[in-house]
Design a protein around this nucleic acid. Structure first.
Lengths: 337, 337
DNA sequence: CTTGGCACTCGGGAACACAGAGTGCTAGAC
DNA sequence: GTCTAGCACTCTGTGTTCCCGAGTGCCAAG
């Protein structure tokens, strides 16, 4: 049904449309891509492609524009991820290397990605799930309140104020801290609930209410912060682009953690570092945008996802190259720290 | 020069223009605000106001539009801050009361303010300067690295990884932690540099390189994070409004901490809780926008600033009311925790 | 299967007229 | 002196018409 030449025509249409943002006609196409055939032939192929739903025309007597389905075919079969230039790679490396802590890594990553792609970049904070406990700290704030600080091996720090059910002197707090650390140090976060389950029973009766309170806050922290936090950058890049869906909707989605989460998608467990491309209506919300995302993380631990959001009409090869490269570098950085 | 009636006319122009977003003419004005005078008289007054530079007309035979100077006069002398409704106040209170930690307070505040004003809200994290040290924690990560965690009385947690110049066993770390805490606990952050200045000299010679390294990171943390972090919300509200300066510029400014900082302005030391209103060209960047901001913080400690950014054509009385109310409530919350 | 030719369609821009809103000015009324 | 009424003038925005050009679909010939 779709021979070599028709695919070449589709590719040419996508490339031209992406770069010019104007419907592309048969004549211009035939000469710009030296296809060795006449415009009339190209028209026939276009008619076939349109029949199949890969392209469409905004109105009669305008050029053709790729449909979501057309972009999909282009991404899957007609394009190759474009690697970054050496200069770009070096720039990424030095820029990310300067980060001082996890917050800084994430902030730098998201800015970098936005700048590189000239679109909106989205980065999810490394998930706690596969991290391990590096240290648990209890800091007395007053005689009825302590601050619980949880430090993970990814450098993430979670903090919560705990209201105690009774007055507790510092020595007992210190003891509890020691117990918690000996119990949890180095353990995966996902195993924490199991590990602390029987903890109250192993302690003196009078300590149990306090321990129970602290543990409930600890567990709450693990659950709530699970993979909630997502940041974005490069919203200014939306200003130029025209979205089929309103600009307002896009901005609203960016500020909604939950929506962003769904847009970035789940890491498919089998090939977590693969690039995910969602085009137009394939997205849950924001049907008029495309998203290029991938998992990242140190080693074979996939910790979280990052990606780029832009108009359906985007330069997929370049964007995919940038996302893949940034994911690799930030994974390296995380592995090293 | 400007009698009562001329001021009334100016006020009417501002109010009408803000609500309709269209240049307002003499006729509509005379009837909508029952000024008891004819349109012709209003026209004379308008001519005078225009002569003085308070209003202008986009083109001949269009209505009048307030200038920056006109808004300024309106804000200073012709309007009163509009208090929130009881329902709104209760909503604020319950919404803010649910916050679990400082991050949460700030996030909730900025969203609340954006929703309340239907504009872009900007909130600066409470400054460290006037906070005091609640606890310093050193957590060994490996034999050459420790994590430094600084907890303040405002519930803020700062963390940094410290690369040590030599291998240090945990006992020495614990000792150093004890020294640091006994030295700094409860002290104002601004006095930390003085307090630790002679610390190395009071310790055994072999500890000095390690201590010096840790201290330098500590001081660095205090300086760099000084009042750097600012968050915003409600960017989606920009979608509708039309800015004289490009939307792109506004979005770019929002992502630049430094620019935001300058826009929010310094807290004037004498009356820190006063509302600051910067109109149009009075702003350092973004000449086409207005900013309503104020300091907030617990008790008489002004910790940071928050505010709203919007088009020059904004409803100042309502916006000012919302900013003031939110600042008060968040100050209360911070004081209580 | 490809190509050249040809008639057809439609969007976008230019030219134009027109209605409506608003102004400034002047002369008269209170 | 101050306000009001009337009037001529000046704009912008909108709707209309017209035309050009790009692009298509189809058909017949190579």
């Amino acid at each position: 049904m779709l021979d070599e030449r028709k695919l070449a025509v589709l590719r040419a249409i996508v490339e031209d449309y992406v770069s010019t943002n104007e419907p592309v006609g048969s004549k211009a196409l035939a000469e710009r891509h030296n296809l060795k055939v006449s415009p009339a032939t190209v028209r026939n192929d276009m008619a076939a492609l349109e029949e199949e739903g890969y392209i469409t025309q905004p109105h009669t007597s305008a050029g053709r524009v790729p449909t979501d389905k057309g972009y999909r075919l282009f991404v899957d079969r007609l394009s190759q991820v474009k690697p970054l230039s050496g200069a770009e790679r070096r720039a990424i490396e030095t820029f990310l290397a300067g980060a001082v802590d996890l917050d800084d890594v994430v902030t730098r990553t998201v800015r970098l990605l936005a700048q590189l792609t000239r679109q909106v970049a989205v980065v999810q904070y490394p998930t706690l799930t596969r991290s391990t406990v590096r240290h648990v700290e209890l800091v007395p704030l007053s005689d009825r309140r302590v601050m619980l600080v949880l430090i993970t091996n990814t450098g993430r720090v979670e903090q919560r104020v705990v209201e105690l059910p009774e007055v507790v002197e510092d020595a007992r707090i210190a003891h509890l801290r020691a117990v918690l650390n000996s119990c949890l140090d180095g353990c995966g976060l996902s195993s924490v609930p199991d590990l602390v389950a029987d903890l109250p029973e192993r302690l003196p009766l009078e300590d149990r209410p306090v321990v129970a309170t602290v543990l409930s806050v600890l567990l709450e922290t693990l659950v709530e912060r699970h993979d909630e936090k997502i940041v974005f950058a490069g919203a200014a890049n939306l200003a130029g682009a025209d979205f089929t869906t309103g600009l307002r909707d896009v901005l609203e989605a960016l500020e909604e953690q939950v929506v962003l989460m769904r847009l970035l998608g789940e890491t498919t467990s089998d090939t977590p570092s693969a690039l995910t491309v969602r085009i137009g209506a394939e997205n849950p919300y924001l049907r008029g945008t495309s998203i290029v995302a991938t998992g990242y993380g140190s080693g074979d631990n996939q910790l979280a996802r990052l990606g780029v959001l832009g108009p359906t009409r985007m330069d997929y090869p370049v964007t995919m190259g940038a996302v893949r490269a940034v994911a690799r570098y930030v994974s390296q950085i995380l592995a090293a720290s």
